[in-house]
């Protein structure tokens, strides 16, 4: 083999090697037919009663050291946010675009996150978003870039993330979450605050992402 490979060569070379190794021509079809019949005998959906999903979700968040407050209706969101901020002695937090003004309690600052640079976000005390779907089995919040859910850096740079989850957004298992997602949008699964176990396998809450995660679980 030559030490110097010409640009463009490698693509043809690799594809040819794969085809040769698999013992056929590079042009292939039939992948989709074979894909369709792959065995998938795991739970795609689970007939889980909502109450059970909710209690599992709360358990998981508790294990992750993420705080969760239950809210009786959408009308109660503002008061719940006010309570969280008051408890943290926080003067406010950044909000992503699309958050309904009715969610925001008076007496706090809620600057819009979208125009802020990363450095400016770094100086914000926290961020408020909603989510696309939440998963009870794993205690996960799934966010997709767009209105109410912001951009990926919004839920990353500030040290505190407050996330609104409606009970209708909660699914029991991981496979149930996927049909509710748009595969084309930037997507982040968040399961508890950022963490590491790199030091003697001790799980430590908070490395580079937000060190505090609050969830408001809203009945709807």
């Amino acid at each position: 083999m030559n030490n110097q490979i010409q640009p463009g060569d490698s693509r043809q070379r690799i594809l040819a090697r794969i085809a040769a190794s698999l013992g056929r021509d590079p042009a292939i079809a039939a992948a989709s037919a074979a894909y369709a019949v792959l065995p998938r005998h795991y739970r795609a959906t689970a007939a889980t009663p909502p109450a059970q999903s909710i209690s599992r979700f709360l358990d998981r968040l508790h294990e992750y050291n993420a705080a969760c407050v239950r809210v009786a209706s959408e009308a109660g969101i503002a008061a719940a946010i006010a309570a969280v901020l008051a408890a943290r002695s926080q003067s406010g937090l950044a909000v992503v675009s699309g958050i309904p003004p009715a969610w925001l309690p008076p007496g706090f600052n809620f600057p819009l996150a979208n125009p802020l640079t990363a450095e400016e976000l770094d100086r914000q005390p926290g961020i408020l978003t909603a989510c696309a779907v939440a998963i009870a089995e794993t205690g996960s919040l799934v966010l997709q870039s767009g209105p109410r859910q912001g951009l990926r850096l919004h839920t990353l740079v500030p040290d505190h993330h407050l996330c609104i989850v409606f009970e209708s957004q909660l699914v029991a298992t991981v496979p149930e979450a996927f049909p509710r997602l748009d595969p084309n949008l930037p997507t982040t699964f968040i399961s508890g605050p950022s963490a590491t176990a790199d030091i003697e396998m001790t799980r430590i809450k908070g490395v580079h992402g937000p060190r505090s995660l609050h969830v408001l679980l809203v009945a709807d």
């Binding site: 998981r60 992750y64 998963i135 089995e137 794993t138 205690g139 996960s140 870039s145 951009l151 990926r152 850096l153 991981v174 084309n184 949008l185 930037p186 997507t187 982040t188 699964f189 968040i190 399961s191 508890g192 605050p193 950022s194 963490a195 176990a197 992402g209």
Partner: peptide, 21 residues
């Protein structure tokens, strides 16, 4: 990998989504 039900973060994206990343 780590004995967790889910690791804290999974990121999924394609190409260069407008204004994000």
């Amino acid at each position: 990998a780590t004995g967790e039900r889910m690791n804290p973060y999974n990121s999924i994206w394609s190409g260069t989504p407008a204004g994000d990343g």
